[in-house]
Design a protein around this nucleic acid. Structure first.
Length: 990
DNA sequence: ATCCTCCCCTAC
DNA sequence: TAAGGTAGGGGAGGAT
């Protein structure tokens, strides 16, 4: 049916299979032709660029402009055109109308509309592709945004809260009661046709405070007894209601670790009374309360959630108030009337703002300390003179040398950082050089500087530096203590300020955010600088702290512009400046280029982006891998098509502590307490996970017993182990049990432990979403497959359910053979399931099958009974044979099913059913249905489509399992998109 | 090839 | 004293 390149490549009997064969030669030839033609085209045209350098497109199907024209455009502008799709080489697929059935073949690929190319050329640079995506995020199941709203609205038991940004002096706040856990989002599936602007919603602001700051996540500003403001979480949340803390009458911390609530916090929720809140429970929370890194991470999460909630709220309520925007609009209007001429509407190109607070912790810390302004200041936990007593057992020199060597590992020939390594003469020299300074350093404070003022930076002080060392560089350096609550308040205000302009925000950290201002500027007819000024003035006024803003046509450029903007400034990096600007930038200024990569690059003689531009893509990919290589290639030219992501999905939840870990034997207890911490975080996020990873830092053999830094972990090796759970959990008991098992399996010397971490992955939401449902089913199947004595009633629902569907379907098979696809899907599914459950298959399942099928199954059992066990089925069934359907010539894991009275392509041969890969059975089968429906639309057979939809609706929505209802929603939404495209309106489903 | 798993690296 | 957390991206290499 389809003759597309990737389809061809996907199957094997089509001439693509033989690599290096005819097709390969042809592809090569075509590419060569393209490269040859390109310069000629460029010359002919006279107007060209290289904006598409690093971009290779493949055009699928009919497009406007035509594939030929797109090919010509790519030639003119430095890109590549692939006549055949190559998963590894093609960077973008261009299509106007993509059948949904292809979604599954396009995982992770960028599929864009042709306007991406034409608009980019108009703009003179590559625009972010996300606005042109045919479907956003083609990974896995994709859901139209509309459907998400519906699902979320329906699934939510509590009303959605309305986060109104604080505007001017009047503060608004969320009803505490309304604050439920922000439910987990489905994967993005947004038909991103530019940015839609929300209409004003009829939401009633709730006045709860006169204070300037309201807060995300329902934190309420309250007055402390000492008169200081702080943020408190709301009184109720379904997840936290059982956390009792005597220190807080009736109030529950959203994030206990954020606050010095004392050791009494007990995360054991519905799991009964605490059994393990021994001394290290206190140690853990004590540590987290004081850890800046912990806070930074937590806040990043919270602000991401806040931005997520802006999205879902707008969707749920249909509108939002943008008072910052309105204010700016008025300002601009007065400006325009004064000049009495509208600014000429220009071609809009995308504009990203990177908003970054200036030395955040410091500026918050000295807001009310006038005497420290303009002075070298550092935020650190150390407040003393910067000297400490030398501790016994430590060998700082050894440590410093080790780290230095590690840093240089690529500069010299690559070698192992072995502690026992014989030092080379060069090393000895370095050692001599360092001896004196090391001895000094050892007696200096090793408290890290979290943030330092620009005055301190001038003296050479840097973030992350030890305080003692910094004090030597800059004796007048003033230490300022942490004030985590204040940071959070300021950050909250910053986010609310941004949200008062637009919701196209991506949270990068507590003090840093991206704003996609493209549509906002277009709407206001404003220049980027005007918006940046307004935002900066707002932030400064509301927080007393300054922010800098970098602007550029993509994220990369915006971030680089910020470096020039700082401090307390703004900078718009114009497209025409990019080349000159970026050439001299150090490679370390590129995102993703850190210590390791920069030293690797240094070994290649690359220090600046200009240097990096001289390295070929092939070389970079060889050196750094395909993905990283390409990214480097593009970044050093200022090219970046990452979208501003307003919605992010969390993939893991973890807690670790690599400080002050010294055990004698109580390691298990610590694991238990850490599990409780993880439980708390999981529950706060409303997530459960099915994989647990234990990470332990062990003192490296030969390293000093006592590290140079007090409480530090010193030189360590990492050890980690992961294990899968039978079902997802958010309970500390299970996490602890698993962690303890892993821990014992590691057989570690407890006294050498220097750090412990617990991570939970493969998350799913508390309210199962459709994409999670496949895991849900998988759980049931795997549970059965492992032949644990599980409760059979748990499993029965699905086979029975499918049998019912099959029964209906087989009836239709007889009357309408074109329904075969749907039928195939259903049959495929039921047999897959029955095959896996077959060990203990219940007669009721069998009985529910249509007669012919049942007969066939039984026959096959008899035949199969003679075959050795070639179906994954650990338990020996007492009565049932090992597999469902026999087919001796088929490889294991393949079932052959004869469908009676079949016509058409598969009729006489039977249907080959592959046992689904359990990572994706649900997804693919549902996509099959979508595909089938799409074909009906393409065939203009709306009558049949209508019947099928209604049929499915009846079947799926009557199920007690909400999964099915949601599966139906998904199918419907996808179909509606196609119908909309084809007919300009949608199906009415009653 | 492609997927999965186990790391390392990076960023704040 | 000091509070070296946490999440995501992606490469390497093995399983399929």
């Amino acid at each position: 049916m389809s003759r597309d390149g990737w389809r061809k490549k996907a199957s094997d009997e089509d001439g693509w299979g033989g690599r290096g064969g005819y097709m390969a030669a042809k592809v090569y030839k075509l590419e060569e032709q393209f490269q040859k033609d390109a310069p000629r085209e460029k010359q002919k045209e006279g107007m060209s660029s290289s904006i598409f350098s690093g971009v290779a497109i493949y055009v699928n199907g009919y497009t406007d402009p035509s594939a030929d024209e797109l090919r010509r455009l790519m030639m003119l502008h430095g890109g590549q055109y692939h006549v055949y799709y190559s998963r590894s080489k093609t960077t973008h697929i261009v299509a106007t109308n993509l059948p949904n059935s292809k979604i599954q073949e396009l995982r992770g690929e960028k599929v864009v509309r042709p306007e991406w190319i034409t608009d980019s050329i108009k703009a003179g640079r590559v625009l972010p592709y996300h606005q042109y995506q045919l479907y956003a995020k083609q990974k896995g199941l994709s859901f139209p945004s509309v459907s998400r709203q519906n699902q979320e609205g329906a699934a939510r038991s509590t009303p959605l809260c309305n986060p109104r940004p604080s505007c001017g002096n009047s503060s608004t706040q969320i009803h505490p009661e309304n604050h439920g856990p922000v439910s987990r989002k489905n994967k993005d599936f947004v038909l991103t046709n530019g940015h839609d602007h929300a209409v004003n919603g009829a939401l009633k602001p709730v006045e709860v405070s006169r204070l300037r700051t309201s807060s995300p996540q329902g934190f309420i500003p309250v007055q402390n007894s000492d008169g200081r403001r702080r943020l408190e979480p709301p009184a109720s949340s379904s997840l936290q209601t059982t956390i009792h803390s005597p220190n807080h009458t009736g109030r529950i911390w959203m994030n206990g670790s954020n606050h010095s609530a004392g050791p009494s916090h007990n995360p054991s929720n519905h799991s009964g009374k605490p059994t393990a809140c021994g001394p290290d429970a206190g140690i853990i929370s004590e540590f987290f309360t004081h850890s800046r890194l912990h806070h930074i991470s937590t806040w990043r999460n919270e602000f991401s959630e806040y931005v997520n909630s802006l999205q879902s709220r707008r969707q749920a309520t249909g509108g939002a108030v943008f008072c910052g925007k309105d204010k700016l609009k008025k300002l601009l209007a007065s400006r325009v009337s004064a000049v009495s001429s509208m600014p000429a509407p220009q071609v809009r190109q995308s504009c990203i703002l990177h908003v970054d607070m200036d030395c955040f912790f410091v500026s918050v810390g000295i807001r009310e300390k006038a005497h420290l302004k303009g002075k070298p200041v550092a935020v650190t936990s150390n407040r003393g003179p910067g000297r400490v007593a030398q501790r016994p057992g430590a060998n700082p020199q050894m440590e410093f040398e080790y780290y230095q060597q590690k840093r240089n590992q690529y500069r010299t020939a690559k070698r192992d950082c072995d502690l026992e390594m014989t030092p080379s003469p060069e090393d000895i020299e370095i050692r001599e050089q360092n001896r004196r300074v090391d001895q000094d350093l050892a007696s200096l404070s090793m408290a890290e500087i979290a943030s330092c003022s620009y005055e301190a930076r001038q003296a050479g002080v840097r973030n992350g530096m030890f305080f003692g060392q910094a004090k030597q560089l800059c004796p007048e350096l003033q230490a300022v203590p942490y004030d985590f609550q204040a940071y959070k308040e300021v950050a909250t205000t910053m986010y609310e300020t941004l949200a008062s302009y637009t919701h196209n925000i991506e949270a990068l950290s507590c003090d840093e955010a991206l704003v996609d201002a493209t549509s906002l500027l277009a709407e206001l007819g404003a220049a980027p600088d005007e918006l940046a000024s307004a935002i900066r003035a707002d932030v400064k006024e509301k927080t007393g702290c300054s922010a800098s803003v970098g602007m550029g046509s993509n994220i990369l450029l915006a971030r680089m512009a910020t470096r020039r903007a700082k401090p307390e400034g703004q900078y718009l990096l114009r497209p025409e400046e990019v080349d000159d600007f970026i050439r001299d930038q150090p490679v370390t200024s590129l995102p993703g280029v850190g210590r390791s990569m920069s030293s690797k690059l240094a070994a290649l003689g690359v220090a600046t982006c200009g240097d990096l531009q001289q390295v070929s893509m092939v070389r970079l990919q060889k050196e750094f891998g395909p993905r990283t290589g390409q990214t480097l290639f593009r970044f050093c030219r200022g090219l970046d098509d990452r979208p501003v992501r307003s919605e992010k999905e969390r993939k893991s939840v973890s807690a670790e502590m690599n400080y002050n870990i010294r055990f004698t034997k109580e390691a298990e207890k610590f694991l238990t307490n850490l599990s409780m911490e993880v439980q708390k975080r999981l529950q706060t996020a409303g997530l459960k996970g099915r994989r647990v990873t234990l990470k332990v830092m062990m003192r490296k053999p030969g390293a000093p017993m006592e590290p140079a830094k007090y409480g530090g972990h010193g030189i360590c090796d990492n050890v980690a182990r992961t294990s899968a759970l039978a079902q997802p959990t958010d309970r500390w008991e299970q996490i602890a049990q698993e962690a303890t098992k892993l821990f014992h399996a590691m057989k570690l010397e407890v006294t050498d432990m220097r750090g412990v971490g617990l991570q939970v992955q493969q998350l799913e939401g508390l309210h199962t979403t459709p994409q999670d449902s496949r895991r849900h089913i998988r759980d049931l199947l795997l549970a059965r497959r492992q032949a644990r004595p599980t409760n059979p009633s748990q499993v029965e629902l699905h086979p029975l359910y499918y049998c019912k569907m099959i029964q209906n379907d087989v009836l239709r098979y007889e009357s309408d053979m074109n329904q075969e696809v749907l039928g195939r899907y259903l049959i495929n599914y039921v047999f897959s399931i029955v095959a896996y459950c077959t060990c203990q298959v219940d007669h009721s399942v069998l009985d529910a099958l249509p007669a012919e099928l049942r007969e066939q199954v039984e026959k096959s059992w008899i035949r199969r009974g003679h075959l050795p066990n070639d179906v994954p089925c650990p338990s020996t069934p007492s009565r049932a044979p090992s597999s469902l359907i026999a087919s001796e010539p088929q490889p294991a894991g393949t079932l052959v099913l004869q469908i009676p009275n079949q016509h058409g392509p598969m009729g006489s041969t039977g249907i080959v059913l592959e046992l689904p890969d359990f990572s994706q059975p649900m997804e693919e089968d549902i996509l099959q249905v979508v595909k089938y429906c799409t074909e009906l639309v393409e065939d203009k057979d709306l009558e049949k489509l209508d019947l099928v939809i209604k049929y499915m609706k009846r079947l799926m929505q009557q199920s007690v399992e909400s999964v099915w209802s949601m599966a139906f929603d998904f199918i419907l939404d996808n179909v509606q998109v196609v119908v909309q495209q084809a007919y300009g309106s949608t199906l009415k489903v009653t």
